[in-house]
């Protein structure tokens, strides 16, 4: 909005700036041919793609021959063996419980971190350290945190919850902060104008505007934590992951198939529920 901009343009504009006739002709055509500038970037893009695929040993031919093995592996998961369904349910419930607590702790701590990491709320000497901290957390895989906490508090879901909580500060804290930075500045100005304290400005102008986005991101975090809790089990941090690894190591394909199917069902149900809630919000 131009009325609130505080910087005057550097110099007065010339009277009636003209559009370059060549540009005009190009824009008038129904099919707009990309500019040379755009075309020049194409070989660069292709170069980067080629370089990356070579480095990552990406080979479509090998993927083709490997597909047979993948199909073979998947076919062994069928039929699933639900003889230990009770165990699966118990562990899935534990996984969900981990995700609930991990999401709650994670979202509360992330919100606190996000206040510090919002350029519009925090002063620079708080903002930059907060952003750096989140970058560091984000660059460490959650699995590494899980291993760290397993060695600190022992095997079990508690270590998993701690890993999830710490991990979510890095990911969701950043998204929260950006949601709060992107609110309409008008109400913020209005609240500052009535003499509200910084805390009141956040509470009455920032949070109410950012709330739908924050809730939506929290639901995404929960979905992510349910899937994450499955993986954390691989290193003994509770949940269904441990059972999954054991079944894989024992070549117990029927049981493995049953576990995978159950996880798919739970994740799908949660995904649908949170999609419903998010639709309600917006």
């Amino acid at each position: 909005m131009s009325t609130t901009s505080e910087v005057r343009p550097p110099a007065p504009q010339p009277r009636n700036p003209q559009l370059d006739p060549l540009e005009r002709a190009r824009l008038e055509r129904s099919v707009v041919w990309p500019r040379t500038r755009t075309l020049a970037t194409l070989p660069i893009l292709i170069g980067i793609l080629w370089w990356s695929s070579a480095g990552a040993e990406f080979d479509p031919l090998e993927l083709g021959s490997g597909a047979v093995n993948i199909v073979d592996y998947l076919s062994r998961l069928w039929p699933p063996d639900f003889s230990e369904f009770g165990t699966i349910v118990r562990l899935l419930v534990e996984t969900l419980q981990m995700a609930v607590i991990g999401t709650l702790l994670g979202s509360v701590l992330s919100l606190l971190m996000a206040f510090a990491a919002s350029a519009t709320i925090a002063p620079p000497w708080v903002y930059y350290p907060a952003r750096w901290t989140m970058n560091v957390i984000r660059s460490v895989p959650e699995l590494v945190f899980a291993l760290m906490f397993v060695s600190a508090v022992g095997l079990g879901p508690f270590a998993g919850i701690l890993a999830m909580t710490l991990g979510s500060i890095g990911s969701i804290g950043k998204v929260y902060a950006e949601a709060m930075e992107s609110v309409d500045p008008g109400p913020v100005t209005a609240m500052r104008s009535v003499g509200a304290s910084p805390r009141q400005v956040v509470q009455f102008a920032v949070l109410p505007q950012a709330a739908p986005l924050l809730v939506s991101y929290t639901l995404l975090l929960f979905e992510g934590n349910v899937r994450g809790a499955t993986i954390l089990g691989l290193v003994g941090a509770g949940g269904i992951g441990l059972e999954l690894t054991t079944a894989m190591r024992m070549y117990d394909y029927g049981h493995l198939g049953a576990i995978v199917l159950s996880i798919i069902v739970v994740v799908t149900v949660i995904d649908q529920c949170s999609a419903l809630i998010r639709r309600r919000l917006t």
Partner: peptide, 19 residues
């Protein structure tokens, strides 16, 4: 802030908190 509290302001874009 104390001085601002004594100055009522009305804006072109109203600047209410929409929700």
């Amino acid at each position: 802030r104390a001085v601002r509290a004594g100055v009522g302001q009305v804006f072109q874009q109203f600047n209410l908190i929409p929700r």
